[in-house]
């Protein structure tokens, strides 16, 4: 009997079937993770009276459309435009990151050129630079370019990421065989041709992962958009939501109706691409 016990304990955790307690704790974790989102919906669908009573409301009300209509009709918040702006910014940034980072990742992974090791080390080092610290100077640079208050100011700093280059390089090293690249070259393919016809098809899963992570991160960005876009007619959705919460009397059912609308696209992405996002984060961890 003790031998059997030892056999069970000696199994690696990932081979040990989860017991009831594991499921219970995980279920509690899920509850903790999902509750604020659920409660966001509750507040977004309630009227003022429902929010001013104890115990607090725990089921959604029926005022969602009323609240949403109010959010969209507020004069100086530009909520509808802000959703479009966020979509533009996130899409452009994502497309650019995917293209430039896969290009550079391919070069670092498969091409031989002088200085490639040093330059790659530089990319890795920049991973740890907190670029929020250059934000004052970035504002001045954007001022000189005349871009402050426009979407360009938000798009430009996001166009490439060190993480993207790093992630793409890792993926290409592991999935694109050298022989395939070599034989294509022997057949007369140029480097760009190899990129387009061999590398791109092979890295589709990695593009999905990086694309999702980039889109989510860009959509959620707040500090820099707030600095450069606040007070203009072109806020991103995060700036618009914070505008809803500004002033002396904040009406939370409106704020959270706006917040909810700005969160839905990401919930949809998690629902569809959750597997990819999980993969991206876990693969990103093993590299380090």
């Amino acid at each position: 009997m003790s031998a059997r016990r030892a056999g069970v304990v000696g199994r690696a955790p990932q081979d040990t079937p989860a017991g009831i307690w594991t499921y219970l704790f995980l279920a509690l974790t899920m509850l903790f993770a999902a509750f604020p989102l659920y409660w966001m919906l509750v507040i977004a669908t309630s009227n003022d009276e429902a929010l001013a009573k104890l115990p607090p409301a725990v089921v959604p009300g029926d005022q969602f459309m009323t609240n949403v209509r109010e959010v969209f009709s507020l004069q100086d918040v530009y909520f509808a435009a802000s959703l479009v702006n966020s979509l533009i910014v996130s899409s452009v940034v994502t497309a650019s990151v995917l293209f430039f980072c896969s290009l550079a990742g391919f070069a670092f992974a498969k091409l031989r050129f002088r200085g490639s090791n040093v330059l790659m080390l530089f990319v890795v080092l920049t991973l740890t630079v907190p670029n929020q610290l250059g934000i004052v100077a970035l504002y001045i640079v954007m001022g000189k370019l005349g871009w402050n208050g426009t979407l360009l100011a938000v798009i430009a700093p996001g166009l490439v990421t060190a993480f993207g280059v790093f992630y793409m390089r890792q993926f290409i090293v592991n999935t694109v065989p050298d022989e395939l690249v070599e034989s294509a070259r022997v057949d007369g393919a140029t480097t760009m041709r190899v990129y387009a016809s061999i590398v791109l098809p092979a890295i589709r899963p990695a593009l999905a992962v990086l694309g999702l992570l980039t889109f989510v991160a860009t959509w959620n960005e707040f500090q820099w958009p707030l600095i450069t876009l606040s007070g203009t007619d072109f806020p991103t959705s995060m700036v618009a939501v914070s505008d809803l919460a500004s002033g002396n009397y904040v009406i939370y059912r409106r704020v959270l109706a706006g917040a909810f609308i700005a969160t839905v696209p990401l919930l949809v992405m998690l629902f569809i691409g959750g597997r990819q996002i999980v993969r991206g984060i876990m693969e990103g961890a093993v590299k380090s």
Partner: peptide, 12 residues
């Protein structure tokens, strides 16, 4: 599921 908070905007 554990990623729900990760994708939720901090603003929201």
């Amino acid at each position: 599921g554990v990623l729900l908070p990760y994708i939720t905007p901090i603003v929201a």
